[in-house]
């Protein structure tokens, strides 16, 4: 079941079209990557989901019903541009923001104490925010995002500003939240983290969704039918050509060992390819070249010239 679904969402600003018929489906309990180059319309879509702005047309369904004002209690939002009240004490501030998300004072305080202990920042409770290091401010902000245990978490570039140790810790937290059944929309430019944690993605470019689906499927969709084969032979190796395959490139690794890139015809199976080669050569390793999300991103964005305007 989809926790969140947008249908043909259109948002027009004075001088440009931010979203043009955007439909996405975010399955419940999964991590959904919202990708796209700068200015593609991601932030506008996130704001519409958060009910910060309203779409010009189209609908947003949340948890089975049309989005309504009290849904914001079920959404936790970590904006890309972080910011809190600098002059306010950390604990007081966290309680205030949690109350605005519908928690009672006592409940907010209890939960915050749990999280502050967990992130080892309890001693900063009575300090002003501006006295904290950037990394600690990020932790506070993350806690504020999840404190009301929302069904949907929207994390916009959550790793920016974290050192590698804390980034890894944050990643574990995010995966833990997923285990607990939270649905997470994850917006980033860091494609390797998308591969690591996202189940589904939607790629927005120039106000349109240009690619969406489960990460595995998307990558298969972009398969090039190229394979990396490492083989050994005692004879001279001719250019590998056959009805099913053709050699694209080769490097000689050492005496008699070659790394070869082979393109296979899509209708041929891997076994057929292996059989054809295995008869004559010793195959040391065999792997399909599946394009990374990084490559897919670049390929899709570059092949999508301006559709609008």
């Amino acid at each position: 079941m989809d926790l969140l679904e947008t249908q043909d969402v259109v948002k027009q600003y004075a001088n440009h079209l931010a979203l043009d018929g955007v439909s996405i489906q975010v399955p419940e309990g999964r991590i959904f990557g919202l990708l796209g180059p700068n200015g593609a319309g991601k932030t506008t879509l996130i704001r519409i989901i958060n009910r910060i702005t309203a779409p010009d047309s189209g609908t947003v369904r949340f948890d089975g019903h049309l989005s309504r004002p009290e849904d914001v209690y079920q959404i936790g939002y970590l904006p890309e541009e972080r910011g809190l009240y600098k002059k306010m004490k950390v604990g007081e501030q966290a309680i205030y923001l949690a109350q605005l998300k519908g928690l009672s004072y006592a409940e907010a305080k209890k939960r915050l104490q749990y999280w502050f202990e967990k992130f080892e920042i309890m001693e900063w409770w009575n300090r002003k925010l501006e006295e904290l290091s950037k990394g600690m401010q990020q932790k506070v902000q993350f806690i504020i995002t999840v404190i009301h245990e929302p069904k949907l978490l929207i994390l916009d570039e959550p790793f920016s500003g974290f050192d590698p140790v804390n980034a890894e810790r944050l990643k574990q937290e995010i995966l833990e939240l997923k285990e607990k059944g939270h649905t997470i929309i994850f917006s980033t430019h860091n494609m390797s983290s998308v591969e690591e944690i996202c189940d589904h993605i939607a790629l927005i470019n120039h106000a349109h969704v240009v690619l969406k689906g489960a990460v595995g499927e998307v990558r298969r969709q972009f398969r090039t039918h190229r394979y990396q084969i490492r083989l050994q032979t005692s004879e001279a190796l001719p250019k590998l050509e056959g009805p099913l395959f053709s050699e694209q490139a080769r490097t000689a690794e050492s005496e008699g060992i070659y790394n070869i890139c082979i393109a296979k015809r899509p209708e041929a199976s891997n076994s057929e390819l292996l059989r054809a080669l295995g008869e004559r050569y010793e195959i040391l390793s065999f792997a399909e070249e599946i394009p990374s999300m990084h490559d897919i991103f670049i390929q899709v964005v570059e092949n999508n010239p301006l559709k609008t305007e």
Partner: peptide, 17 residues
């Protein structure tokens, strides 16, 4: 202006009209 420049506004308006 303080809320706008220190960017807490984005977080605030996700909870409050």
């Amino acid at each position: 202006m303080e809320e706008k420049t220190n960017r807490i506004i984005e977080l605030m308006v996700s909870s409050v009209r």
